[in-house]
Every structure is written in structure tokens, then in C-alpha cells.
């Protein structure tokens, strides 16, 4: 079965997306800078102004974004003429895995560190196509959070959230 969440594309397409996103981000940040109090205020001297380096960074980022976008468009046209094949693999599973661990951060304060860790590890192993028939997979999913809980909370005195649904 073809894995639709891993697909081929060209690096030039991804570079174009990056360029456009950076330009949009730059424009948004310039708008933010013009509308927030700290950045629109006038300062008595350049040394007291907290906006010089931020503006430099934002404009620099935006200009580089424009250049990258233009470069990518030229590259895409050249590659289209040469009928270049895909040279990059986008793996959406990696993004899903990362978002799963964001979910871990959301549920951990309610469900507790150990329970949320065990559940997220089991789901992660399944996502990564680990062999779910092997007992060692489940042993690892249970043992690792428990061991970490013991080490970090008892030895290093880190306060982890406990189960608090009821």
C-alpha cells in the first residue's frame, strides 16, 4: 500500500514556499512593529532605541525571503523545461509525530506525567511502525516513563503533574 503521507516533490518548490512564508511573516511583523507601543515610540537616542536590531532582522528576513522566492521561481521554470524529477521527500508522519508530543504537553497536566507518557509512547511506536506484536514494545513504553519519573522526581526533585481528572 503506497504511503500517501510520504510524497515526493522538488526542493525548489519547498524553497518557494519558504520564501513566500518568510515574506508574509516579515510583512506581518512590520505591521506589528508599527502598531505596538514599544516599537512606535520615539527614543531620545539611538543607543536607547530597542527597535534598531529588530527592524534590521525583520527587513533582512523579508528581503532574503523575496530573493529566495524569485530564485526558486527561476529554478522551477528551468527544471520544468528540463523535466526534472522529484528530489525531495516530504514525510508528513514526522509532523504528526511532533504534534502528538504537543498533545502530550496538553494532556500531561490533567492526566499526569506517567499515564500520558505511556499512552503517547505506545501511539508513537504505532505511528513509527514498530512491531506492536512484540511484548518488548509495550515493556519499553511502560518502563521508560516510570524510570524517568523515578529518576527525575525522586533524585532530581522535579515536580511532575499527577493524575487529576477526578
Amino acid at each position: 500500500m503506497k504511503n500517501k503521507l510520504i510524497f515526493d516533490t522538488r526542493k525548489s518548490h519547498i524553497e518557494l514556499v519558504w520564501g513566500l512564508l518568510t515574506v508574509l511573516a516579515g510583512i506581518a511583523l512590520i505591521y506589528v512593529m508599527h502598531t505596538t507601543a514599544w516599537s512606535s515610540k520615539t527614543y531620545s537616542s539611538i543607543t536607547r532605541s530597542p527597535v534598531l536590531i529588530p527592524y534590521t532582522a525583520i527587513y533582512g528576513m523579508t528581503i532574503m525571503g523575496v530573493i529566495l522566492s524569485v530564485k526558486s521561481i527561476v529554478k522551477i521554470r528551468r527544471e520544468d523545461r528540463a523535466e526534472k524529477k522529484a528530489d525531495a521527500k516530504v514525510n508528513v508522519w514526522g509532523v504528526i509525530l511532533a504534534l502528538l508530543w504537543a498533545l502530550f504537553a496538553i494532556v500531561m497536566p490533567t492526566v499526569g506525567f506517567t499515564v500520558s507518557g505511556i499512552v503517547c509512547l505506545i501511539v508513537s511506536f504505532w505511528l513509527c511502525q514498530a512491531d506492536m506484536r512484540k511484548p518488548t514494545t509495550y515493556i519499553a513504553a511502560i518502563a521508560v516513563p516510570v524510570v524517568f519519573y523515578v529518576i527525575f522526581s525522586k533524585l532530581l526533585l522535579v515536580r511532575f503533574p499527577a493524575f487529576s481528572v477526578f
Binding site: 509525530l97 511532533a98 508530543w101 507518557g117 503517547c120 509512547l121 508513537s124 511506536f125 505511528l127 513509527c128 511502525q129 514498530a130 512491531d131 514494545t137 519499553a140 521508560v144 516513563p145 524517568f148
Partner: peptide, 12 residues
């Protein structure tokens, strides 16, 4: 397997 290692590393 990386299927075991990757989630463990992210958890750590």
C-alpha cells in the same frame, strides 16, 4: 529499530 528509538528520544 528507529521506530523504537525515535519516540524514546523525543520523550527524553
Amino acid at each position: 529499530p528507529t521506530s523504537i528509538l525515535t519516540p524514546l528520544v523525543i520523550f527524553m
